[in-house]
Each structure stands twice: as structure tokens, then as C-alpha cells.
């Protein structure tokens, strides 16, 4: 049911996520775009699971757990950098270069 459209929507969502990561400058919004990419993949898994069996649905739970763990760590890192810089603009991450 709706396998083709679901996969297309998933591809579009993934592309929006990629574009957001490349364009946006606020670290939190960049991270939201990464979450969007992960959830786009989840949509693919769910859509494919209709045809290919329950395995795909189980994978989605693993991905959700992984995304939650990433969010915890990522937001903590962002707090750490905000304490140093009072900003989350990724273009200002320019101490390390050479």
C-alpha cells in the first residue's frame, strides 16, 4: 500500500534534512535537520516493512533509541560550547584551523 509514494516522501524529507544541514547556521537547527534525516529513513523502513515483513518495523525502534541517545549527547555538547561562546552559530566555530 502506497509504497512508491511513501518512499518518495521519505526521499524528499531526507533531502530537506540534507539541505538544512548544509544551509542553516544554528547548531540546534542543524541537529533538528539531522533528526529529520533519521526520521525520513524510519519512514522508508516502515513503508518497506509492509512488503518485506516485520523486521523493518523493529529496526525503527532501534533507530529511535539511537536518535534519543544522540540527542542527549548532542545537546549536552551544545550547552558546553554555549558556556564558552554564548553562541551556537556554527560559522563562529573557527578556533581550530590551519
Amino acid at each position: 500500500m502506497l509504497l512508491g509514494p511513501s518512499l518518495t516522501v521519505s526521499l524528499i524529507l531526507f533531502s530537506i534534512g540534507v539541505a538544512g544541514v548544509l544551509i542553516r547556521r544554528n547548531a540546534i537547527i542543524v541537529f533538528m535537520c539531522i533528526e529529520l534525516m533519521l526520521n525520513a529513513v524510519n519512514l522508508s523502513f516502515i513503508a518497506l516493512a509492509q512488503q518485506l515483513g516485520r523486521e523493518g518495523q523493529v529496526i525503527v525502534f532501534f533507530v529511535m533509541a539511537v536518535a534519543a541517545a544522540e540527542a542527549t549527547v548532542g545537546l549536552a555538547i551544545m550547552i558546553a560550547i554555549y558556556r564558552h561562546k554564548n553562541s551556537l552559530n556554527v560559522t563562529e566555530l573557527n578556533l581550530l584551523r590551519g
Partner: peptide, 19 residues
């Protein structure tokens, strides 16, 4: 501050790659 910056860069690009 260098470590914090390294961690944020690594995190953002690492998560991007994982996706």
C-alpha cells in the same frame, strides 16, 4: 574551548554521516 569546538564539529558531522 578547543575541545568543546572539536566535540561539536565531530558530533554534527558524525550524526550527519550516520544518517
Amino acid at each position: 574551548i578547543f575541545a568543546a569546538e572539536a566535540a561539536l564539529k565531530y558530533f554534527l558531522l558524525g550524526a550527519f554521516a550516520s544518517a
